[in-house]
């Protein structure tokens, strides 16, 4: 029997995979991919809780998260392409202007 805990643990594992990606990668494109993973992990958690409590709010929130993710990609990818044309690289280190 698959319970809510199974889904929440899966959601946690996926979230941590995304988090490791955000921490480890230096490429901006990879950071965007990792962000998508984070958002999807949270979506699974929302929908699972909504289903097991017989409540539609979880699905609603997942729906709006998908909308936010779509617009984030549109703007983020635009900025990414802009940065690549300006600097010739999408490495995170090129964003570092102040040498701290």
């Amino acid at each position: 029997m698959i319970t809510l805990t199974h889904y929440l643990v899966l959601s946690a594992i996926l979230f941590v995979i995304g988090l490791v990606g955000v921490i480890r990668r230096k490429n901006l494109l990879m950071l965007f991919f990792s962000t998508e993973i984070l958002l999807n992990a949270v979506n699974i958690g929302f929908v699972a809780i909504g289903n097991f409590y017989a409540d539609l709010t979880g699905q609603m929130f997942a729906f709006f998260i998908i909308a936010v993710a779509a617009s984030e990609v549109a703007v983020g990818l635009g900025l990414l392409v802009f940065w690549y044309k300006k600097e010739g690289s999408i490495d995170l280190d090129t964003l570092q202007r102040m040498k701290g």
Partner: peptide, 12 residues
């Protein structure tokens, strides 16, 4: 989403 679309068009 509309704002994001316009921003994407302007940026690229």
């Amino acid at each position: 989403l509309l704002v994001a679309m316009i921003a994407g068009i302007i940026l690229v």
